[in-house]
Simulated assay, not measured.
Amino acid sequence: MSARRTGIGLRPQANPQVEAWIRQGDGAAVSKGDLYSARLTLDVTPALRARIKVAAFTQDITVAEMLRGLLEREYPEPSS
């Protein structure tokens, strides 16, 4: 067998008009990254994780939505 490698070619030149159109979108869509730009990671026991997942499921929401709501209630924006 030969140990010959085939290289990957250069990335094609981007078309600025196409790139701008892709980034523009339809103007109405907002991605999660636009709303939530920080990620929080914490370790929990498997039993607690299961209880959290069941609670979210019974409320018909995602775990992330449920925990964001809980954190917003617990740590509201300071009043000015």
Rank of each mutant, 00 (worst) to 15 (best):
residue 18 V to D: 00
residue 24 Q to T: 07
residue 28 A to T: 14
residue 32 K to C: 07
residue 55 A to N: 00
residue 6 T to K: 12
residue 26 D to K: 08
residue 45 T to E: 10
residue 21 W to N: 11
residue 70 L to N: 01
residue 24 Q to H: 08
residue 21 W to C: 08
residue 58 T to W: 05
residue 8 I to M: 03
residue 19 E to G: 00
residue 44 V to Q: 01
residue 71 L to K: 03
residue 65 E to G: 04
residue 76 P to L: 10
residue 19 E to C: 02
residue 36 Y to K: 01
residue 18 V to G: 01
residue 38 A to W: 09
residue 21 W to V: 09
residue 76 P to K: 05
residue 75 Y to D: 02
residue 41 T to A: 10
residue 70 L to M: 13
residue 47 A to I: 04
residue 16 P to Q: 04
residue 27 G to D: 02
residue 2 S to W: 06
residue 72 E to P: 02
residue 29 A to F: 10
residue 15 N to S: 14
residue 20 A to H: 03
residue 27 G to R: 08
residue 41 T to D: 10
residue 38 A to M: 11
residue 34 D to A: 12
residue 55 A to T: 09
residue 9 G to P: 09
residue 11 R to D: 05
residue 2 S to A: 13
residue 52 I to K: 01
residue 2 S to V: 09
residue 5 R to K: 14
residue 72 E to W: 06
residue 74 E to W: 00
residue 12 P to W: 01
residue 51 R to C: 05
residue 62 T to R: 06
residue 51 R to F: 06
residue 60 D to V: 12
residue 32 K to A: 12
residue 43 D to K: 08
residue 57 F to W: 06
residue 52 I to C: 01
residue 37 S to T: 13
residue 7 G to R: 15
residue 17 Q to W: 12
residue 5 R to W: 13
residue 59 Q to W: 00
residue 58 T to P: 00
residue 44 V to L: 15
residue 46 P to K: 08
residue 37 S to C: 10
residue 7 G to W: 05
residue 78 P to H: 08
residue 61 I to T: 15
residue 46 P to C: 04
residue 45 T to S: 15
residue 24 Q to R: 11
residue 36 Y to V: 03
residue 15 N to I: 01
residue 35 L to Y: 07
residue 47 A to P: 01
residue 41 T to G: 07
residue 30 V to F: 02
residue 42 L to M: 15
residue 20 A to Y: 00
residue 48 L to M: 11
residue 9 G to I: 06
residue 80 S to N: 12
residue 47 A to C: 04
residue 79 S to Q: 14
residue 5 R to H: 12
residue 47 A to R: 13
